[in-house]
Design a protein around this nucleic acid. Structure first.
Length: 441
RNA sequence: GGCGCGGUGGCCGAGUGGCUAGGCAGAGGCCUGCAAAGCCUCGUACAGCAGUUCGAUUCUGCUCCGCGCCUCCA
């Protein structure tokens, strides 16, 4: 198994199973509902964790929730705790709807305060950080490898968060003294305050995965400064930290990155909501499969529609009621060979579009077992179950069957329309009972 | 200005130094009372210009275009 790592700028091999493989994913800052773009890393890494387990790895998947931050203070003056709690619940609720389960741990910054403070103290003691009027800053100039992840040259960089207290404009805050209007603070050796953005991830990763682990993930927009800073502070604290850095491509809306600051946002809730975008979870999951995890992907009616059509095509395979005993692999379809290819493409940088192509080939070959066994990896096992029609629909279909037997086609067509109006499609088939009912949305 | 990613047939989207990606849409046909579903047939694409090579969409350089980061952002 190998994946592309931003740090090495190449594919990096994972140690052989069983690992262990620790995965740390940067989750959202909670002050509003997450958007579909935020859902992409969640989905990709849930899938990856599942796949690695199937391949025999011992996986520990940690994804944090940032619940102290300037944005949260700004969004709910005096009520930041309530907002963060509520928005964290939204995040869980919305991503739960994707049906992929949860990471092994979802730590919050506010629940990791001791470790955060201890780590900052260690950096100060080691001379990698300094205190200034209750703030603590990381001394970028002292860490020689600064910029190795993002390939930024320190002398070319612009200032990070300007502050007159910094000794060097490139330094960044590990701890911030409490300011007016902030309704939460924690005691520390430097007085009351709260952590900077980057240190929480270093502390939580070390706490739950140890000083050295395999994979650190997040969106491409986190490479600099967030991940650069995490790497610097953790290494400065003597930890090896993550070996592999996976950065997923960003979701785009009308050609631009979907982001809260640009305001071109479709919330995950809205995308899945019947009264809004109304896409089902399967469509969204398959949509994410269609592009490689490192590439940008366009969220548009066209691309979602194409994903939806594919979802229905897989459903169709399981409506066919294939007689497995009579089934034989057709020309050009060798399940064993294809199974190996399937493993191969996922083991090679987790290429889901290639995996999807193989599933389509299996579908064409009517190899329902092959497809059923693999759809589950992506949380799409629901496509294999065909919904039963309710009695009143069945009754209409029976009436239509009689009408057809009498060659009363006007009545037959009227009944078909009536069934369609109720959200079902009736088809004439040769197998008993002579019709097939399919749910339509 | 600095750093980085990408440009593939109508659309989405993998991949490869020479061998069919796959999907969507479209056209024709079989089947059907009409449909639906299914099946069959049909598309020789890889931004442009140089170069390396027996041969490049795939490697190198340049140009053009798009995107991301350098400030909070998955």
């Amino acid at each position: 198994m190998r994946v592309y790592s931003t740090l090495q700028r190449t594919l990096v091999e994972l140690p052989a199973p069983p690992g262990p493989v620790g995965i740390y994913l940067c989750g959202p800052t909670v002050y509003q509902r997450i958007h579909v773009g935020n859902a992409r890393p969640y989905v990709i890494f849930m899938w990856l964790a599942r796949w690695l387990r199937l391949r025999g790895y011992e996986v520990t998947f940690v994804s944090n929730i940032t619940d102290v931050n300037d944005k949260i203070y700004a969004a709910a003056p005096g009520h930041s705790v309530e907002l963060a709690d509520r928005a964290a619940d939204w995040y869980i609720e919305d991503t739960d709807r994707l049906g992929l389960g949860r990471p092994d741990a979802e730590p919050k910054a506010t629940e990791t305060m001791e470790d955060i403070i201890a780590m900052i103290a260690e950096l100060v003691a080691g001379g990698h950080a300094y205190e200034a009027q209750g703030d603590v800053y990381f001394r970028v100039g002292r860490y020689g490898d600064y910029g190795q992840l993002s390939r930024q040259k320190p002398d070319q960089m612009e200032d990070q968060e300007p502050s007159s207290l910094k000794k060097d404009p490139r330094d960044f805050a590990l701890w911030k003294a409490t300011k007016e209007g902030e309704d939460t603070s924690w005691e520390s050796p430097w007085g009351k305050g709260r952590p900077g953005w980057h240190i929480e991830c270093s502390a939580m990763a070390a706490k739950l995965l140890g000083p050295s682990f395999e994979i650190h993930g997040g969106g491409l927009d986190l490479v600099f400064p967030h991940h650069e800073n995490e790497l610097a502070q953790s290494r400065a604290a003597g930890q090896e930290f993550a070996h592999i850095w996976m950065h997923n491509g960003l979701l785009r809306l009308t050609g631009e990155k979907m982001s809260k600051s640009l305001g071109n946002v479709a919330t995950l809730e809205a995308v899945l909501d019947k009264d809004q975008y109304g896409w089902d979870r399967e469509t969204l999951l398959l949509f994410f499969m269609t592009a490689h995890w490192r590439k940008p992907i366009d969220f548009s009616p066209e691309t979602m529609m194409q994903a939806h059509t594919q979802v229905d095509a897989f459903r169709e395979l399981f409506r066919m009621k294939i007689d497995r005993a009579a089934w034989k692999p057709p020309q050009g379809w060798n399940p064993d060979v294809e199974a190996q290819k399937f493993e191969g493409v996922l083991d090679n940088d987790f290429n889901t579009p290639d995996a999807l192509a193989i599933l389509h080939k299996a579908r064409s070959a009517w190899d329902d077992e092959f497809v059923r066994e693999r759809l589950g990896i992506f949380g799409l096992e629901s496509l294999t179950v065909d919904e039963e029609a309710p009695p009143e629909i069945v009754e209409l279909a029976e009436m239509r069957l009689s009408a057809r037997a009498e060659r009363n086609f006007p009545e037959s067509d009227r009944l078909r329309d009536e069934i369609a109006a109720a959200g079902w499609e009736v088809r004439d088939v040769s197998a008993e009972p002579g019709y097939q009912l399919v749910k339509r949305d």
